[in-house]
Design a protein around this nucleic acid. Structure first.
Lengths: 231, 231
DNA sequence: GTTTTTGAACTGACTGGTCAGTGCAAAAAC
DNA sequence: GTTTTTGCACTGACCAGTCAGTTCAAAAAC
């Protein structure tokens, strides 16, 4: 098991602003980042690994504060509640993932690659993301199909973002005739997500010594139907 | 969302016996099933849906008892603890899944089908299982990659059972020359599990009106690389 | 340039509530 | 008459969220 890396700070705070205490506190800054931002970052880092390991309910706010090296009160000074901390963490992480996927697809398009190439590039980007932030990925998978939870709507939004990035490429491919028009875009996109997700988590958990290239090659082969047939 | 169906009783209690109060209570039976077994069954059914919805920690023993229509004391008369109830539930469910997968593979072999046919049959069996027991599947996915939990070892055992069933078919296929000997058996098996898992959960959650055949066809197409190319 | 004030950020003890697990006598089931 | 279930009161640990008070760097006052 690799030491779980955590999510990096984000340049522009967050896409969907959430009112927490004073907005736009461009107050005390040093080195371009406010003290608050640094603290929130530490809390994200602590929370993501703890929740990935134990789940949301089993993780206490005291634990998060302790791992972040901060007093409990600070958690509540920075986030309205435990759930809000978690929701912002989700948005933060998924934002990074979708950006990475779309960037991969666009780069391929710029290079004049086919849609299969784009899909392949997105698989690689997905694997890269999971390798960098395994804890976040774990947490995301674990919460994705839960129902009756406070952050249900956040999850839906965030899920659509990821799946839509893949669906767009599939649809373009069908439109251009590169893909069969008999494929089921939504279901295929979900299946691809699952393929990468589970393979990557298996990789990280059980054979972390293998290289990204290696794992990517195995999935490419599966995607392109080069499984049957002579070696 | 379909009303979540629950796991059926199992003929032979459990593969790995766990000491809970009196062992081997073949005592009072009627119609081949003891009263205790019926109660345990009700508790499994209540627990599986609640834990799938809310997670293990967020689900209280009082809730489980209430939904099962049973007194709290009865839970502890039948299971040593909340975790033990959960672990037995896991073993119970995964036992059914692996049996179903292996049965599908064997049936194909008996009919003289190829290894691709066997894989295809297993995908169908997997989809069928998930459609029947969506709550169990949710719960399984949510817990599978967690670390530092009491039932960690149970999960590992149970994971291997499922993946091994698929790996066996892949290995046989490579040995007989039907599959390329360049495929990565372990990683491909994980990817297949992920493909079916995520596609099926997407199906159940967002387009439950579709038929199993329909979903199966979409995944078959993906598996056999019939995605690119003309319709 | 020294003193005073301000306020954002942080602290940690405390509170009110929740929940796993216990104990047990009486009832029901078999 | 033995096994299983019930109902319910109880305990002790744990935990989300609160709040009165502290810190300190920068701004204001002089």
């Amino acid at each position: 098991m690799t030491p779980p890396r955590t999510l990096p700070p984000v340049p522009s705070p967050r896409s969907i602003p959430v009112t927490i205490g004073a907005m736009d506190s461009s107050s005390t800054r040093s080195g371009g980042r406010t003290r608050r931002e640094a603290t929130r970052q530490k809390l994200y880092e602590a929370a993501v690994t703890l929740i990935a390991e134990q789940g949301f309910s089993a993780t206490t706010v005291d634990e998060i504060a302790e791992r972040a090296g901060v007093a409990k009160g600070t958690v509540y000074y920075n986030f309205a509640s435990k759930s809000v901390l978690f929701e912002e963490l989700l948005r933060h992480g998924v934002g990074l993932l979708t950006a990475s996927l779309r960037e991969a697809a666009e780069q391929t398009a710029r290079d004049g690659g086919s849609k299969v190439d784009a899909l392949d590039a997105m698989i690689r980007a997905g694997l890269g993301f999971i390798a960098r932030y395994p804890a976040f990925t774990q947490l995301y998978v674990a919460e994705l199909w839960r129902t009756n939870r406070a952050w249900q709507s956040t999850l839906m939004v965030v899920r659509r973002e990821v799946v839509a990035a893949i669906e767009d490429v599939l649809r373009d491919g069908v439109a251009s005739g590169e893909f069969s028009d008999e494929i089921d875009v939504q279901l295929t996109a979900a299946a691809l997500v699952g393929m990468v997700l589970v393979a990557a988590l298996d990789w990280q958990s059980f054979q972390p010594e293998r290289s990204l290239d290696d794992v990517h090659a195995a999935l490419s082969r599966l995607l392109q139907g080069r499984v049957s047939g002579r070696g």
